[in-house]
Design a protein around this nucleic acid. Structure first.
Lengths: 343, 343
DNA sequence: GGACGAACCCGAAACGTTTCGGAAAAGATA
DNA sequence: TATCTTTTCCGAAACGTTTCGGGTTCGTCC
């Protein structure tokens, strides 16, 4: 391994000057800078990360901590996250460390330990809960982080998020505008921050239209096909009034709903209208539904670049203002919505 | 962050002695060792990885480099690898770094660069090709590594592998023993080391039984359901003599084969016998096939522990003999094999 | 009582980098 | 000529750890 010393010796310069040349400091002549960079490349020099971290506090390594979930990797979503973030950071010359916790391990000590070893520059936090304790913890620890989503009262940290409240409002409002009043919502697992935001948007739309809020029509659970199916069956087999439309938290839930409705002998959109939010996960396409699914669309894969940007910015000490970003979503109308059948 | 200096000061000891106490060196009294360890825990001390790496060359970080494959994460297999290795290394107090390369990026410079930054203690190599250049490269670089599989002439490196040659022999031989002569093999992508080993076992079994080798019956390709289906269709629609039995490289291929056979109006095992190797991937169970699938069984998930063991051993400088391990497989006879129908 | 060994301990150097404080040389200003 | 700037450079310290080569006690053995 070539070191600064080797370069310095071969150019008859001091180690200091070589370091400054490589890091584009001001007080090194243009000529020296070029000579240094040329020989560094020639000698195949790569700065020793440990040495750099020791003195400057920067290693260029960021981490993601996730629990070993039972269905981790069942759906391709986690892979999407890992591959997306990893390649984004690689592209910035940074390293991405994945740390998988044991199933029921409490997360805070894990972060504590990782911070203790002074290896990482920062963390990416995904799947924040309402008032997520990790956020307070990392803030207190004084280490950089970025959240995929928002959580808590005071949002004084870097994040990338989409307007979950608004998109749930839009989906619900779209149905209300066509005359639906009994609108079900197949939402995600309660406690997740984005799930609560979406619930809020759903309720706001109902309230604005003066439609009744029927608690039995709001279901929380895994966002997979199985729960879309069982949830829909439940919606139509209970004592509560049957919905005429369903808002689904993602396309997988919608797929389950379609199957359940088919099994129940109900047609889409003739008997029941269905809308969903579409993360554009690779395995399932909303446009390939029959009838094609009306959605709000915000590809998950568009998250990794801003997340990496924000974390890199936070580590570099940039001001917070530029590190809080919102992704756009679009409303795509297809063929899964019609006015409610005359009761 | 508490450092050695803090502990030393609070116990009125030298930094040296504290370091030796924590690392269980010989010349520190039992009493001191306990006192030191107690206060280290109390002060929430974690050794600074960078400092340690700088002087001792050990960071406790290992890496896995994978190309951003088009269907990465489609099947759960990659996630299985990442989660398995990550939790194994976490359990050993080590860190696991995942580095995803761009699709067509040449791998050697990536390893070069990672080695150059002197951060990692070693690598896990998966999916080795025949005569994989990465092995030579890492060997020459003098960095520790472990291979999931074996490749090349001289196997003088740590590995964990299963007897791919023998299991392909066993599967083929099982069919030959029941009278089959025209046996097809749906194998993986050519060039992969384990694919070549299995091909060798298949050919050895044919040769030993004096059965003809019909090149058209040996198919290479992706090991997924789609290729199982199209491959099987091809086997039965060409000009070559039709097989009476199929050996599948994994259960996914077998699933595709079952579907194709059903579509062709052929029954298993009445018209065609099917056997496969079963990695026990989480999504698909060989026992749930109808008829239940006869397999050689070697759960992929049993690989991560020995792989981590071997790499940790290699880093610790243990002798090679204990770092070359073979996994066992078992032969599980179910209902997918019968004698060939009288032609 | 001197030599020896065992048990326990410590100072200092080293790893490769960044950065602080200053210094030399050259040109500009007085 | 003396002083001040600007440009370009350098020595030395620091980060937190491991490890080398010692050192000091204390008891034991001749």
């Amino acid at each position: 391994m070539a070191t600064l010393k080797d370069i310095a010796r071969s150019l008859d310069l001091s180690i200091t000057q070589v370091s400054r040349a490589l890091n584009d400091h001001s007080d090194v002549s243009e000529e020296t800078r070029l000579r240094v960079k040329a020989t560094a490349r020639a000698m195949n020099y790569h700065p020793n990360v440990s040495a750099r971290k020791l003195v400057s506090g920067r290693s260029g390594i960021v981490g993601l901590v996730v629990p070993q979930h039972r269905n981790i990797g069942q759906d391709g979503i986690f892979m999407e996250v890992v591959a997306g973030l990893s390649s984004q950071f690689s592209g910035r010359g940074m390293q991405f460390v994945l740390h998988i916790m044991a199933e029921q391990e409490p997360p805070l000590p894990v972060y504590q330990k990782l911070i203790g070893t002074a290896l990482l520059d920062g963390f990416v936090l995904i799947d924040p809960m309402d008032r997520d304790p990790r956020i307070d913890f990392l803030r207190r620890a004084g280490i950089a982080f970025v959240v995929h989503g928002r959580s808590g009262e005071t949002i004084d940290y870097p994040y990338f998020d989409i307007e979950n409240e608004q998109l749930a409002y839009d989906l619900t409002e779209h149905l209300l505008a066509r005359g639906h009043r009994r609108i079900a919502f197949l939402n995600g697992i309660a406690g997740r921050s984005y799930v609560s935001r979406r619930e809020a948007g759903y309720l706001r739309a109902l309230r604005a239209a003066g439609a009744p809020h029927i608690p039995e029509l709001h279901l929380n659970g895994d966002m997979d096909e199985a729960h879309g199916l069982t949830g829909t069956i439940r919606l139509f087999s209970g004592t509560a009034p049957r919905p005429t439309a369903i808002v689904c938290g993602n396309v997988r839930l919608a797929r389950g709903a379609y199957q359940a409705l088919a099994a129940l002998g109900l047609s889409v959109p003739g008997d029941v209208s269905v809308v969903a939010h579409d993360d554009e996960l690779p395995t399932l396409r909303a446009s390939a539904f029959f009838p094609a699914l009306t959605v709000t669309r915000a590809p998950l894969r568009d998250s990794w670049e801003p997340l990496a940007d924000c974390l890199a910015g936070a580590i570099a000490g940039k001001p917070l203002a530029g590190l809080q970003r919102l992704g756009q979503y679009s409303f795509i109308e297809r063929n899964s919505v019609a006015p409610p059948a005359a009761a």
